[in-house]
Amino acid sequence: MKVTPEQIKTVYDQSNAVQHYLSKSRRDGVKVDWEEPFSRSVFKQAIAPVSKNKGEKLRVVDIGAGTGDGYVLLSTLLLKDPELSGSYELEYLGVDISTQMVETAINLYGNHSNVGFECADIRTSKLARPFDLYLSCGVPYSHLTHKELDQALKMIVTNVCENRSRCAVIVDVLGRYSIEWTPQWQNSRWNYSMSFFQSEGDKDPTWMSFYSHQHLQEIMQQAANAVGCPVEKFEFFDRSIMVGRHTSTRQFNPGLPNYRDLVNSLLSPSQQTDLSQLIFQVELGAAPEHILDFFRKFSSWWNRLVSDATELLGEPLAIATVELPPEVQGFKAAAQKELQQISDKHLYRQKLEFMLAQVLRKLEATQQPGYGVGHDLFGVMWLDATRL
């Protein structure tokens, strides 16, 4: 059989993608301590309204499963979360359009009980059985056009209606208004590179779709309406507002401070961080007023916390005093109390930097508005077709 240049390129691209997702360097401090816990918290909130009796199977299909990251995140949540531990028996199916991704996932997790992976295109493949959670992570839906996303969601909603089930649908996409790409804020689809590191800056870009929460909710609601399935509610969550991976590569916003690298430095006991570089100093693009208003408020809170830390180091910054949200109030006093017994300057700074990382993470997690202002936008839709 003759192999075309296009087929050769597809195999090459899939092989590179697999290596890309399996790279150990990809799981940096921000991913492990910041992003993955947030993703698990979204999964937990999605599961809660469709909870089952203890010990029953939680049936999950992971759309665009790749090499199985969603399975790892979800199984870790169900195993280690004190409120969920032992509550469910996970029955997991990962679906991906890439044969190499599926083969890799099978090699990694195929021997785990009640875990399977299969190659399918969610835009055209009909799901064979009901699920309690239609999962996605790693922005698989952003690979689709807006019309294709509508098509894929209709396939899911049709499955829900045919099985008269109650479920949660998680749609993970790229946020339109991330500071990583302010020059592109006026566009909802553009040529994007899936690079994680500066060394990958020459990776071939691919067209991707970007969403505000209004746009994403509109498509989700349209899909449900077209099939005739009742929507119980929607919720939206922004992940990685300040630490998206392209704050490190700065591929789409060259003047952006490398916030991800700086936060990774805070988390590393072997590094000393220039805290003044953490100050929010981003030139925003044209955006709806509620987006700009969010960044004005969020940046003032972020800068206040960084300034509190520099004052404890005797390196004060000229930052305006603002009232912090209740979730992060008292950081300076708590840090001062924690550090007063540490006389070693290196240990003092090391401890303070770690505490600053934790409070900045908490600020992001508790004040994210779900507008599409982070690297990821999670849209969660709860459906109830039990009475149809």
Rank of each mutant, 00 (worst) to 15 (best):
K233H: 12
R245C: 04
K362V: 04
C229D: 00
L174N: 05
E289T: 13
L312V: 02
G29E: 08
E200R: 09
N53V: 12
L90A: 11
L360K: 01
L135Q: 01
S136L: 01
P37Q: 14
P5N: 07
S209Q: 10
Y88L: 03
Q186H: 13
L305Y: 11
V380F: 10
F280A: 11
S165Q: 02
S299F: 14
L174V: 06
C167I: 02
G138T: 08
L284A: 05
L144F: 09
E235W: 13
H213A: 04
I342C: 11
I241E: 01
G116R: 03
E118G: 08
Y177S: 02
R349V: 08
G138R: 02
Q214D: 15
N53G: 11
P316W: 09
H375A: 07
V95F: 08
L352V: 03
E289R: 12
V61M: 04
L360C: 10
L84D: 07
D13Q: 10
S199G: 12
E323Y: 13
E83M: 03
G86R: 12
L22C: 12
G228H: 11
D238H: 08
E103G: 15
Q350V: 01
S25D: 14
F378L: 07
E283I: 07
P130D: 09
V306Q: 00
P82I: 12
V11Q: 15
Q184F: 14
W302I: 07
M194D: 10
S41G: 09
V160T: 08
E315C: 05
T99A: 12
Y259I: 02
V359S: 03
S87W: 01
